[in-house]
Design a protein around this nucleic acid. Sequence first.
DNA 1: TTGAAAGCGCTAACAT
DNA 2: ATGTTAGCGCTTTCAA
Lengths: 344, 344
Amino acid sequence: MSKSTSKSITLKEVAEAAGVSVSTASRALSGKAEAYRISSATEQSVRDAAKKLQFSPSLLARSLRSQQTKLLGVVLPNVANPFFAAIAREITLAAEADGYSVLLTDSQENSETEARLVEQLQARQIEGLVVCPVGMEEAHLCQLARQKLPLVLIDRGFNNRELVTVTSDHQSGARAAMNELLEAGHRTIGILQGMPETLPNRERLSGVKESLESCGLDFDSSLIAGHHFDEASGYQAALHLLSTRPEITALFAFSNQNALGALRAASERGRAIPDDLSLIAFDDFPFAAYLAAPLTSVSQDVNQLGQVAARLLLEQIRSSVPPQQKQYRIPVQLIRRSSITKIG
Amino acid sequence: MSKSTSKSITLKEVAEAAGVSVSTASRALSGKAEAYRISSATEQSVRDAAKKLQFSPSLLARSLRSQQTKLLGVVLPNVANPFFAAIAREITLAAEADGYSVLLTDSQENSETEARLVEQLQARQIEGLVVCPVGMEEAHLCQLARQKLPLVLIDRGFNNRELVTVTSDHQSGARAAMNELLEAGHRTIGILQGMPETLPNRERLSGVKESLESCGLDFDSSLIAGHHFDEASGYQAALHLLSTRPEITALFAFSNQNALGALRAASERGRAIPDDLSLIAFDDFPFAAYLAAPLTSVSQDVNQLGQVAARLLLEQIRSSVPPQQKQYRIPVQLIRRSSITKIG
DNA sequence: TTGAAAGCGCTAACAT
DNA sequence: ATGTTAGCGCTTTCAA
């Protein structure tokens, strides 16, 4: 009944077992035998000892000594959201392939939490950070960049063109969506927006405006409702719009969760989609084609988003210089299904 | 144009600024002033210096010294899968609330990758680990547990009753699903299974068998197809079943992705759901109610799954002793919608 | 009430 | 070709 609290093996023990000094052991194991002209006999005996003892070097100690943690930080507003989950995965995979590990955190869509998490990640000496910022406050992030911490903003961002940002082409996406509605004859279109202060939301709104203007229509702000990208906001906004402006013939939801809320509201109001109400949404999702009204949507290439962010971060770390180009726009794609009816 | 490579402030610098020794500084800042009877004047001057210099202690150094990393490891088969993403989130949130950070990794549904990731996490001296194991090989995980590393298995697991495992009550869930179909008069039911060797799959199969037997029906293995929990497997399995056993009147998909595949297959084969084919699935999802055939499903409480796992892990770390109870079953819930037709 | 010093496990400059 | 030593930044024993 030995309660072996198996402390882990240290380099020193390996060195002793092999009858050499720790430095020799270190060199033999980190592939520097060649460079230090260590005899292959010695090298082998160190390797054997290490294997026999199941030695696994303490990355903690190594990091402290080398000041390289091989750690990346990721701060996302909601890890459970499939959109962000996909981003987390791409970053994780790319990191792993490069010998990095990722500390994943969830800011819960809250600025103070985000700030605290970033500090904590810094205290762990991460070598790079990707964040999808919650608020409109960019100061703390700019400071990170000025401290030479490789930083990449994803999805959301700021007008500050100095921070490396990768996000979708929201404006053309929104334009395409509106054009689709306009071409089908819709003239009173309700907008279910997400968080108003975020870059994606602002740019989608610009796209909406552009599209309207190119049709000679004007932008009626009483046709916009919503405050968040979640289901509840979509539901409330749709309910509000449908009762204040019953003449609405189509809804443009700024996220698939907003669309989900719209579906609930429409069903409660007895407005069948697409017959009594057309719907289009930003963000495609797996079941979109199998809905009662197969949903026409603007699909973001979320994998691409994550991959590009990861690549930019890793390159920045490797070269210790921020990329020339700061703004990266990932194209979106309009997926036509049948949630839009022709009218007029 | 000063290119300040702002090295971060160390405790030593704070001590110097405050005119005290590092030990005093350390004590003052880690709330041990009281215990060490440090004068409040000294304490304050240390705090002031720390604040002025924006001191942030190196968690790396602290961890090395104290042998406590405040790091948790999480290994999931696919972080982008909403089911696992939700788990990741719950663990992250609970960890954060307890001062822990989480290293998130993705095994890509591959055993060797999983093993490598676990080793790497160990090298980083994580204090606890939650893994959703890929294969049927439990040896390496048992060893971790024997090395006294707090470990919690989530979703999947083994028959080994010694490893702390939290998973859904797959068997009753599957029984409920089958009963629903049987009560509606279905007698030839195709099973779209997931990865055959996983615990959830095996237990769901048991539930299916039980339900069949209690009806006096026997379990026909030619009515089972599929090899993975993803869309492709569901699609192929459904296609296969629908052509080899065209008399099938209902399909039970073992995951919502499998159900998605079934939807595609059914649509290609011209079998309308629910009129020409009934469908039920394990795992609910947000849009299930708005499908062309609102999907009846067995809903897993994934948040609960994650929360329980996190709690068990954290408690294990705190008390340095594994919980009495090893097996945790989270209840599932049958959600009736209208993808099942009465027949016969 | 405070300081000096050891040491966590590793790497690398400086000896031989 | 290998060993000695210093030190990464912190906590904590031991001394005063």
